[in-house]
Nucleic acid binder design. Structure first.
Length: 475
DNA sequence: ATGTTC
């Protein structure tokens, strides 16, 4: 599909609607961030998504948008459930409920010091499971306990002693996505997940010890429990083999059944089905179950991190927030003056609720939702906050966004050398593989400082805190 | 992202 891009203002571009698009595309970016690199199909994917049955308002792209499976990563699309709106697994992503969690330590970087920091990194290195195919911290007893976890998410983990009730108040949806249907999760998916609860995985997943470097809004930072110099931990991971298998299973079936609903899509990777259909409900139930697995996973990793901090520095960690950036959620939004029940796909995009939103816990309702924006290895990360007037269904960016393929990164960078460069800059690195490290070189990503600034400029979210890395445990 | 090609 030919892309006709129109600059609406400095941070907002429009892909004009033309057949077979049902709505326009809206790309939040600066000229420098626009994905124009040769071979980058992200904007074409934004236009493809605009053809989905029932899509309303626009097919949106966040400033970190890049090429993905069917949908772009950094894409947001909402479909109207009562008007034939569809759900597409490709609009959620293979890593269902992949997300980020930020914990704040009761100590500043100066007080932590070099020796205790080294001890902390060594403990994390030896206790945080990570890498392709590796096992996790919590060996479930079997399919029965798995069902409890798939229904209960982080809440089930806390009930079993892995964390404290206050953690749940700082989790999106209080740690549990409603509507989980373990019966829609295949036996193979369950088997893959049984021994991976509490593991980072690989790719861009990480656990990073950080420090608050800048505070842009002290009042909101304080509401989030953050101050200058404070040590924090950011955890980025998802639903491992279980979520991957759920996506694979349901994409296959939807692909085979596209003709049943006479759905035409410009790319088979956009396989989808009406939300309000048996197959659509089946996927939503399986997706919610996988999402709860991802949330329990982050809860377990938090618990291990707390043990490491207690041992190395005798300090605690308070959860700031836990947010997914690969989900489809049933939400009510006003479209053309009418409140509509929508299925909001956010793939590589986080929810960003504004102050006053009823979805926020009591102690955050005045401040707004923390929006967690992880950078990449050796770069900054950000905490932002949701704003009123975000017409992308209250969504924001989820990170830096890839620009180099993994293959290209491997040709350009040696993992051993990259580790040396980062250590020379005072950033401790505990990799799981040299190859994985090389693939994640900071050069392979957009500049996260620019992405965060453009996200603010576009009115999607507002900057609250900048974090810098002290040590990274790499998946 | 992913028992990195059921």
């Amino acid at each position: 599909m030919e892309i006709a891009l129109v600059e609406k203002n400095q941070y907002r571009f429009r892909i004009e609607q033309r057949e077979p698009m049902r709505v326009p595309g809206v790309v939040f970016a600066s000229r420098a961030l626009l994905p124009q690199a040769a071979g980058d199909k992200a904007l074409e994917q934004v236009a493809n998504v605009a053809t989905l049955p029932g899509i309303v308002r626009a097919s949106f792209a966040m400033p970190d948008v890049h090429w993905g499976y069917g949908f772009p990563i950094g894409g947001v699309a909402a479909t109207d459930i009562s008007h034939g709106g569809v759900i597409s697994p490709g609009g959620v992503g293979f890593d269902i409920s992949c997300g980020v969690r930020l914990l704040a330590a009761g100590i500043d970087r100066e007080a932590l010091g070099r020796d205790r920091m080294r001890r902390l990194m060594d403990i994390l290195d030896s206790t945080i499971p990570r890498g392709m195919g590796r096992g996790g911290l919590w060996k479930l007893s079997g399919a029965g306990e798995m069902d409890d976890l798939l229904v209960g998410g982080a809440r089930y983990a806390v009930e079993r002693g892995h964390g404290v009730p206050r953690d749940l108040a700082r989790c999106e949806d209080y740690g549990v996505l409603d509507g989980a249907a373990p019966g829609q999760v295949s036996r193979r998916a369950v088997e893959r997940g049984l021994h991976q609860v509490g593991s980072l995985g690989s790719g861009n997943h990480f656990l990073e010890v950080q420090a608050v470097d800048q505070v842009y809004d002290p009042a909101t930072a304080a509401a989030f429990g953050l101050r200058v110099g404070q040590v924090c931990v950011m955890i980025h991971c998802g639903s491992r083999g279980l979520g991957h298998q759920v996506c694979t299973d349901h994409v296959r079936v939807m692909d085979q059944e596209l003709h049943r609903y006479r759905i035409q899509v410009p790319d088979r990777q956009l396989a989808c089905t009406p939300v309000d259909s048996p197959r659509g409900r089946a996927y939503l139930g399986a997706m919610a179950a996988a999402a709860n697995y991802g949330r329990a996973n982050r809860q377990l990793l938090s618990e291990a991190t707390r043990h490491a901090f207690a041992t190395a520095a005798d300090v605690g960690l308070e959860l700031v927030y836990d947010i997914s950036h690969n989900t489809a959620k049933l939400e009510t939004h006003e479209v053309d003056g009418v409140a509509r029940s929508l299925c909001v796909h956010r793939k590589g995009a986080t929810r960003a609720l504004p102050p006053g939103d009823p979805g926020l816990p009591e102690d955050l309702v005045r401040a707004g939702q923390p929006v967690l924006v992880p950078g990449t290895m050796g770069t900054a990360s950000y905490v932002m906050v949701g704003l009123p007037g975000n017409d992308a269904f209250h969504s924001a960016c989820h990170g830096a966004g890839r620009v180099w393929s993994r293959h290209h990164a491997l040709r350009m960078v040696r993992g051993e050398r990259l580790r040396g460069e980062l250590e020379a800059r005072g950033i401790a690195v505990r990799p799981s593989s040299w190859r994985g490290l090389a693939e994640e070189t900071p050069e392979a990503y957009k500049d996260v400082d620019t992405v965060a600034a453009v996200t603010e400029g576009a009115g999607l979210a507002r900057l609250i805190v900048r974090l810098v890395p002290l040590g990274v445990v790499k998946g």
